[in-house]
Design a binder for these strands. Structure first.
Lengths: 239, 239
DNA sequence: GCTAATTTGTTCGTATGTATA
DNA sequence: CTATACATACGAACAAATTAG
């Protein structure tokens, strides 16, 4: 406890030394066991664990029970273009992937204040809620919750289940085209249910995209809220 | 600890009970002390701390040394419009806030592969790197790292330091206007240095916006990478 | 396929430091 | 100044998952 203490806690100093050993390449893939690190840095195993936890929270490390602690390989993110005519299937096929949409859940709900405002419909109006999972080449890319006016799109659930495509389901209701009005982006920790569908660890980060699509007459068609794995995806806006 | 164990760890069960006590309103502001919770749930104080840590990571709780543990009030996110002519100062003033930009750090670097491609300049070209902090009404909104061709904007650092505005600094170099070419959005855990500047807990989430601005002749003016606190901000794209 | 060793995860106990009321 | 409350740190033991033999 006497060496250049500087008021920095031990676990931070351990974390810094681990970070440095990765930066200078002396550790590239797997870290030594916690017990060994504890001995090397002359601290308790708990202190090492606290340091590793901190680095894992930054995304630098990843611990696997029974196996060890590993340096995270940072794979390039998949670019997902968002624009006036955002279509999932077009985006994916443009990158040489096989798209697929699967219905997770559906129900009919009443429009609350927020949904009524977004969809420009009366409070309490019947809405079809569709929870869908988008997959490209076996890798889950997003889970989306979409709300559609039930009177205008009575068979949206069946049509989506049959085609796996919102675009196609809407076309069957006589809507040849629609466009994106506005997209709001934020990020948060993944909801446990979404983590299951997206095959993500429970402390992962998701990009949350909230958007409204409108038809040619500017009437709202759907309000949707999509969650993307932040470490696999990048949303690209070209203006 | 024999009741319906289900193989769920104790700290998770404690976390669930705390979450429930918040959801049903029996705890609205401050949590009881850790020692009291430990006694109430018949577990060690460490187990309570592990549960609280988990809920804090979700953003539900916030611990303050010497004071206690509090339920986080979820404030509505500040909307930050992004478009062809994204200007920090205009965005902020439009919402009745007082904008301010402060220079954190600056240096001259050589363009690596990625920067050369973004800025359409030779590999190894001199670039001015500016790290800036944007604040509105005392609340830090973003940290940005911008790269500018050093030959074209020799005094960018001084001009920014004097004006606190990139727009104004570029104007002084004879560039009356510029526009946003493309914006790429993803999210990640905050870097410790950024956490300091943004006044964020070390495990927070930041939205990362990577963009290139170009002049009227489509020549790249700056490549920038901005980090926004995800729990305070929402990026809005209107197309 | 089974067992033992390895490695991370959880839980207790105890003590001390540091910020706040 | 004292009491309270969260933060750090050590030690010990066992559980759970994986790997090696």
């Amino acid at each position: 406890m006497n060496d250049a203490d500087e008021g920095v806690t031990r676990w931070r100093r351990v974390a810094d030394r681990i970070r440095a050993s990765i930066a200078d390449g002396s550790v590239s893939n797997q870290l030594p066991p916690e017990t060994e690190l504890a001995e090397r840095y002359a601290v308790n195993r708990h202190t090492v664990r606290r340091a590793i936890q901190s680095l894992a929270a930054e995304g630098l490390l990843r611990s696997e029970r029974g196996r060890g602690t590993f340096v995270n390989a940072s794979a390039p993110r998949l670019a997902y273009p968002v624009g006036l005519r955002t279509r999932f299937s077009e985006n994916v096929t443009a990158q040489g992937q096989r798209p697929a949409g699967r219905l997770i859940r559906s129900e009919t709900v009443r429009a609350d204040q927020a949904l009524a405002a977004l969809l420009n419909c009366p409070l309490g109006a019947a809405l079809a809620r569709l929870d869908t999972l988008s997959v490209a080449s076996g890798l889950p890319l997003s889970v989306s919750t979409g709300y559609f006016p039930a009177d205008r799109f009575p068979n949206i659930v069946r049509d989506y289940a049959e085609t796996g495509s919102i675009t196609e389901a809407l076309r069957r209701h006589g809507l040849p085209d629609y466009r994106r009005l506005e997209t709001r982006i934020t990020a948060e920790r993944v909801h446990p249910v979404d983590a299951e569908h997206l095959d993500l660890p429970p402390d992962s980060i998701v990009l949350v995209s909230s958007a409204v699509d409108v038809d040619a007459e500017d009437r709202p068609v759907q309000a949707m809220r999509s969650r993307f794995p932040a470490d696999r995806m990048e949303l690209v806006f070209r203006l």
